[in-house]
Amino acid sequence: MTALLSIQAVTKVFGGLTAVDNVDVDIAERSITSLIGPNGAGKTTLFNCLTGLHRPEAGEILFDGRSLIGLRPDEITARGVARTYQNIRLFGRMTALENVLVGQHLRLHASHWSAILRSTRQQAEERAARTFALELLAFVGLESHAEVVSTNLPYGEQRLLEVARALGSRPSLLLLDEPAAGMNPSETDRMMELVHRLRDEMGITIFLIEHDMKVVMSVSETVAVLDYGEKIAEGTPEEVRANARVVEAYLGPEVVLQDTADTPNL
């Protein structure tokens, strides 16, 4: 099995703080992989390294066999990696539809001259883009909100819109940074169902950061655990749950001996 994404010994340092420390993760095509770890473990920083927002001090990131190191964020997106953000970062004054259209920016090629002249090709491309955007909105369940300005959407729907925007660039790998953060249980279920559909219906590989242990266990096939920037465990959900270092990282050393099986919402 060749990995779609291969993170090799990536290290990112901020001043004196090593936010990501020599981390290796391989992600197989069409898999759902979770990245977990306590707050400040370096998960978001790893995502930032993957999407070109930060340049890692050391290590290699291979996507589809080619290195992503040193590429601009838009180049990485062009390669097929898209992401969402932990603290929602939509284009606030745009409508939901426009957000998704910006997501498609890379997939539109009509020249600016043709936009001025409204050539038939450019018009056809714009129409296709709108249709695709509406399809994506329908896919995440926001078809009725296409014309709503995105800041006016409820919180949970803003998260869904971020997913739709990311899908606009037709990614093969989708990075979701705490997609269910701040959601109630039913919204979380809806989001997790969406994650499955993304993989099953669209064939997109998913790499997601999640806090909620229950969610992680139910959704992912592989789990990697970060603590203080280091990867301390990797494996199936069951393996990770049984791992003493993981429990220690989450709960502190004194509770290691407790029964970890029913620890709720780590």
Partner: peptide, 11 residues
């Protein structure tokens, strides 16, 4: 609206 996100979105 957001330069970083625009860039990461492909701009």
């Amino acid at each position: 609206e957001d330069e970083d996100v625009a860039e990461a979105t492909g701009v």
